[in-house]
């Protein structure tokens, strides 16, 4: 390895990628590839962790015990997904604590969808159906990502996410086929979540600065706009099936292309939320910071206990 120069190493690296050979933690990788992965996987981890908050809001008010148990299981999954991903970040040489502190200082981003509030019970259904649905669309191709630990984490995550989406659609279906008030609650919730869900796929291809390089490295397999289109195509019929109306006057089926055409996304809103000015940005980060500070004594006590036991064992 020492006698190869960087250009030669980079060429061999790209050759592996082109041949669909996975990159593992200790293999040579260009610094930019490592940095891109650290940024993407840590953002993904933060999104899982922050994603617990809008749902945590409804645990004590779930309408019955079944819904409550399901919601708790889902939130626990999100925590697990965050942990798989933080472990994957660590394999790239990033420090876990620093990664988490970057979230708390506002330096690191997370999915902007979690900066919207969960106002009604219908939102629990809408998050599962739309938000997890969009996440699955993003994550399934990531199971074939060129970086081994990320791809393996995604396989686990995708297996678990499909329950999330189905339970969400079940909640929405129950409301949409219930009393007029329940149906109204479902429709109102869809009206609020539809556009932010479409924004989850990120900026349009023309404005996405990372897409071309990420696709060359096979971190990404599809562009943001391709995935967004795929999401619209599968989700619109799901809404129609249960009698809900997608809040987009420009939405129409195009017989020729076999795809739905949909209206312009409010990119101004998207960038505002990304830049930290969404309805709940401050609340979310404050909640995470508080959780870390409030839990400090537990982590210290666990360390002290481990040290004490190790000493006792040694003597």
């Amino acid at each position: 390895m020492k006698d190869l120069n960087i250009n030669e190493l980079d060429r061999k690296f790209q050759e592996k990628i082109d041949n669909e050979i996975k990159i593992e933690p200790k293999d040579y990788m260009p610094e930019a590839y490592r940095k891109t992965l650290i940024r993407q996987i840590s953002q993904h981890a933060h999104s899982e962790i922050v994603g617990q908050l809008p749902e945590g809001n409804w645990v004590t008010r779930a309408p019955n015990l079944r819904r409550k148990a399901v919601l708790l299981a889902k939130i626990q999954d999100e925590a697990g997904h965050g942990l798989y991903l933080y472990s994957a970040v660590e394999t790239l040489g990033a420090d876990r604590e620093e990664t988490i502190d970057d979230l708390h200082s506002g330096k690191a981003k997370y999915s902007s969808i979690f900066n919207y509030p969960s106002l009604t019970w219908a939102d629990m259904g809408m998050i599962g159906w739309l938000v997890d649905g969009a996440a699955i669309m993003n994550q399934v191709p990531l199971c074939r990502c060129s970086y081994g630990p990320y791809a393996r984490a995604m396989v686990r995550v995708c297996k678990e996410e499909s329950f999330h989406q189905r339970q969400g659609y079940e909640i929405v279906t129950k409301l949409a086929t219930g009393t007029p008030e329940q149906k109204e609650m479902a429709q109102e919730s869809l009206n609020r979540w539809w556009w932010p869900a479409l924004m989850m796929f990120g900026p349009s291809d023309a404005d996405s600065k990372h897409t071309a390089q990420s696709m060359k490295w096979k971190i990404k397999r599809h562009t943001n706009d391709e995935l967004r289109q795929q999401f619209v195509d599968v989700t619109v019929p799901q809404a129609e099936l249960i009698g809900l109306k997608v809040p987009d006057p420009d939405l129409k089926w195009n017989e020729e292309t076999g795809h739905y055409e949909f209206g312009e996304i409010n990119w101004n809103e998207f960038w505002q939320v990304v830049e930290g000015y969404g309805p709940c940005n401050k609340e979310r980060v404050d909640a995470r910071r508080k959780a870390k500070e409030d839990g400090a004594w537990v982590r210290e006590a666990a360390n002290a206990y481990a040290e004490k036991r190790a000493k006792r064992k040694a003597s």
Binding site: L83, A153, A302
Partner: peptide, 8 residues
């Protein structure tokens, strides 16, 4: 299966 952090 993966890795994690723990005190002991």
């Amino acid at each position: 299966a993966g890795s994690l952090r723990a005190a002991d």
